[in-house]
Design a protein around this nucleic acid. Structure first.
Length: 826
DNA sequence: GTGTAATGCTATTGG
DNA sequence: AGCATTACAC
């Protein structure tokens, strides 16, 4: 109970300073979560009502974990009323409650990135713009950036800077696209991820009474990972906190890694200016990692210019030094990593879950997977294609979405002819054109097809009619039945299940199983009764009461009025009003004896999963003891005893795209800092000398970040046993490849040099890099593997100089001379 | 309109 | 290499 005793002095102060603006600068592993948890618990023990506390986290999982910890201190009855979640999920819920104020229905759809890009593609077609010039992804990023800076479509077009930028990049019409995009989203009753924040800002800006309500509601606000918030999020927080100014932000500027998607490090650096009476606390003692790890990470981040002063230190043991591994190919890198894991497991009796393999890009996971599979080491990949992004799942979900919101155009487009029902592209184009012309949604056209003059023959019309009827049936079912029943109905009646039922190929079977898994998820969801204390669902329910009940009557009346509009409209709207009733029912304390509650509905299920990511998913028992594979970004906030950071190569990490500006490179370095500080006991870094990219082999050189680690924190290099065996067996060239690293290696880079030299002396051969110092363009050379060729270009400075060689058989390659072991022929 | 073969583009990072 | 879009034959 005396939780304060478990805190060090600065942690304790950070917990006790409950009133007024507070900034906690929390170094990696400094017990940040503990402070946040205890701070909330402390507030509650001081008598603050849980309803008045809002806590924003980076992932839903983090919110859930924190809530569980708080529950242990204050008990579930209290903690259940806390608002905790990500910006997106918390404000999506508020938006649903307040939707009609900004002209949206409560059942609005959330578009994911794929939906957004699909919509942009449509708009490009309408405007006759070239997809190669206006790449949908880039256009999307541009619109996203605008929204995150609270620039609406209209102000974008009036914004001279934005217009200039677009003009000079050869894409002057992005403003027009943005405008159409926003209109189309609105017409479809859809919001993209950025709209959830943008529209929250609109809501709070234009409706002072709403702002006041939530200011009163959230008297205490906590924001985790504040360094990764963007301007839009910043303004929301600032507005909500304006009345009581009980705002506590926690962050670490050294771990800011989301600038690429609009996060603004200035938010944390400027916090002082916003709140002059700010109290700042620094958490600098690291409890997670060994001295070697903490110090190595410090030595890396010291290379950044922009940072808040702080000194992270630890009382932990020195621990092992950082190990470096070098591979010839990406596959071998996987092999080395898998083997190291195997050895550590054997030596220390360690669980699989103690290991993480971190990489810069998702594409790197493949080599790791293969190697782990060969050694029978169970693993789990986070990120990449999530369950909900699989085609067959998205197809079913598209039906679900369309049933809940008939105006959801992206879902409609996806399934209007899937499974094939004879409604082809031309028909769809005609309908979409009519929708744009009449400024209504596609559904409205379809549902009133005879009111519009369309050149569609009667055969096609009856097909469209059948489709409309099908969806209307689903919409009706979505009201009267539980989520699972509707899901099953949709899977069957849509014909999707049948598509795979007959398919006996492994892919077909797997798809069928995936759909079953989705349905199982719905079943579990819809039969959920009293949610566990402290769980997410509980939170949703309690919020709903609070927010929605007060307006329930008024809104039900409005809904009824509006439901006269169209038949289909009435279906969904009724669904909503019924849901609201469910909400009000929740308000009374439920007991087991009460009459059975309606099964949870599809609409609720869809809201639940819309903002879930892989990281949020529950793991079942068989999934618990596995090696984790993920990008470094995804590893933020996590910790593992043993961490492997792979692909430590120039142009990969740091990414090639980051090399143009100092700030981008600094972000990469912070990313590396994040990677290093995930580890508790031991870090292993690996790089490969070659790697496949777009199907062909490229040469790589070790990352500059390796050299930035102070040498004394690196393990004295030695060639691992398996390395040697394998090389000699499988690739005779490998030994030679590694041999004789340039003695004249840059003395400014002693780490690499020492490492490489030492390995080389173990197995020397007769290659002398000195022999290449006269190499020039035009010379004929020979390579162990690629054969003979001619040098066409030389670049770089010795010893990191590279030659471009056109080989007679192997084609053009870029080779780093110190590794390539070229022989001059003439 | 439907299904398959050929082409072409791509891979930061993510809610 | 893998995926998506396009081109072409039915």
């Amino acid at each position: 109970m005396n939780y304060l005793d478990e805190l060090n002095e600065s942690q304790k102060q950070a917990v006790l300073a409950t009133e007024g603006p507070v900034m906690i600068v929390a170094g990696a592993g400094s017990g940040k979560t503990r402070v946040l948890t205890y701070r909330v618990a402390h507030l509650m023990q001081k008598g603050v009502d849980a309803f008045n506390i809002l806590s924003l986290t980076f992932t839903n999982k983090a919110a859930k974990a924190m809530k569980e910890r708080i529950t242990k201190i204050v008990g579930g009855a209290e903690s259940r009323n806390l608002w905790m979640g990500t910006f997106h999920s918390v404000f999506a819920r508020i938006l649903r409650a307040e939707a009609e104020k900004i002209g949206y229905p409560t059942n609005f759809t959330i578009y994911d990135t794929e939906d957004s890009k699909g919509l942009i593609k449509d708009i490009l077609k309408e405007l006759n713009l070239d997809e190669k010039v206006y790449k949908p992804g880039l256009v999307y990023n541009r619109i996203s950036a605008a929204k995150n800076n609270l620039i609406s479509a209209t102000s974008y077009r009036n914004n001279t800077q934005a217009q200039e930028e677009d003009k000079s990049s050869g894409k002057p019409l992005i403003g027009n696209i943005y405008e159409r995009y926003a209109k189309r989203c609105f017409k479809a009753s859809a919001m993209d991820f950025d709209d959830l924040l943008f529209n929250t800002n609109v809501l709070l800006r234009d409706f002072p009474e709403v702002l006041l309500k939530y200011q009163e509601r959230f008297k205490y606000i906590l924001v985790d990972e504040y360094q990764d918030t963007n301007f839009s999020q910043y303004v929301i927080i600032k507005q909500l906190a304006a009345r009581y100014e009980n705002i506590c932000v926690v962050g670490d500027d050294a771990q800011s890694i989301y600038a690429f998607r609009g996060a603004n490090i200035q938010n944390i650096l400027n916090f002082e200016k916003d709140y002059p009476d700010l109290k700042t606390f620094k958490l600098e003692q690291n409890y997670r990692s060994t001295k070697n790890i903490v110090n190595a990470a410090n030595s890396v981040i010291a290379n950044n210019k922009e940072q808040l002063q702080k000194l992270v230190w630890t009382e932990n043991d020195s621990g092992d030094r950082i190990k470096l591994m070098r591979a010839l190919t990406d596959n071998e890198e996987g092999y080395l990593v898998a083997n190291s894991i195997f050895e550590i497991k054997m030596q220390n009796q360690t669980h699989n879950k103690s290991f993480a393999i971190l990489y810069r890009t998702n594409a790197q996971s493949r080599a790791m997977e293969e190697a782990l599979r060969r050694l029978n080491i169970p693993y789990k990949i986070y990120g990449g294609l999530s369950f909900y992004q699989r085609k067959e799942i998205k197809d079913i979900l598209a039906y679900c979405r369309l049933s809940i919101n008939n105006h959801d155009e992206e879902s409609l487009k996806r399934i209007i002819n899937y499974p094939a029902r004879g409604i082809g592209d031309t028909t769809i184009q005609k309908i979409m054109l009519a929708a744009t012309d009449h400024d209504v949604s596609i559904w409205t056209i379809l549902d009133n097809i005879n009111d519009f003059t369309l050149e569609i023959n009667s055969g096609t019309k009856s097909k469209l009619d059948a489709f409309i009827t099908l969806i209307k049936n689903f919409s009706a079912a979505a009201i009267t039945k539980g989520a699972y029943e509707v899901g099953e109905y949709i899977a069957n009646a849509s014909g999707i299940l049948k598509e795979f039922y007959t398919d006996r190929t492994p892919e077909g079977v797997s798809r069928y199983e995936n759909i079953q898994e989705l349905l199982n998820g719905m079943k579990e969801f819809s039969e959920e009764e009293e949610p566990e204390v402290g769980s997410q669902e509980n939170e949703v329910a309690s919020e709903k009461n609070e927010v929605e009940s007060e307006e329930l009557e008024e809104r039900s009346a409005k809904l009824e009025e509006r439901s006269q509009e169209t038949e289909a409209g009435s279906a969904t709207l009724e669904a909503r009003s019924q849901e609201l009733e469910v909400g009000s029912e929740n308000q009374e304390p439920r007991t087991k004896n009460q009459e059975p509650r309606t099964k949870k509905q599809l609409a609720e299920f869809m809201q639940d999963i819309a903002l879930l990511t892989d990281a949020d998913k529950e793991e079942d028992d068989t999934e618990k003891d596995r090696v984790s594979l993920m990008t470094i970004h995804a590893a933020k906030g996590l910790e593992f005893p043993y961490v492997f950071v792979v692909g430590m190569e120039e142009n990969l990490f740091p990414s090639q795209l980051s090399l143009n500006s100092r700030s981008d490179l600094e972000e990469e370095r912070r990313l590396f800092y994040v990677a290093l500080t995930r580890a508790e006991k031991k870090i292993t870094l690996s790089f490969s000398l070659t790697r496949y990219r777009w199907g062909n082999l490229i040469n790589c050189e070790p990352s500059r970040f390796i050299e930035e680690i102070e040498q004394k924190y690196l393990e004295a290099p030695s060639a691992p046993q398996h390395d040697q065996e394998r090389t000699t067996q499988r690739d005779p060239g490998f030994t030679k490849f590694k041999s004789k690293q340039p003695q004249a290696n840059n003395p400014a880079h002693p780490i690499l040099k020492k490492n490489l030299v030492k390995v080389s002396t173990a197995r020397n051969t007769n290659f002398d890099p000195e022999s290449l110092k006269d190499l020039q363009v035009g010379m004929q050379v020979e390579h162990e593997k690629f054969g003979t060729g001619q040098v066409t270009n030389m670049e770089g400075i010795y010893p990191n100089n590279k030659a471009t060689v056109v080989f007679d058989k192997a084609g053009q390659k870029q080779l780093l001379l110190k590794f390539a072991r070229l022989k001059i022929l003439n």
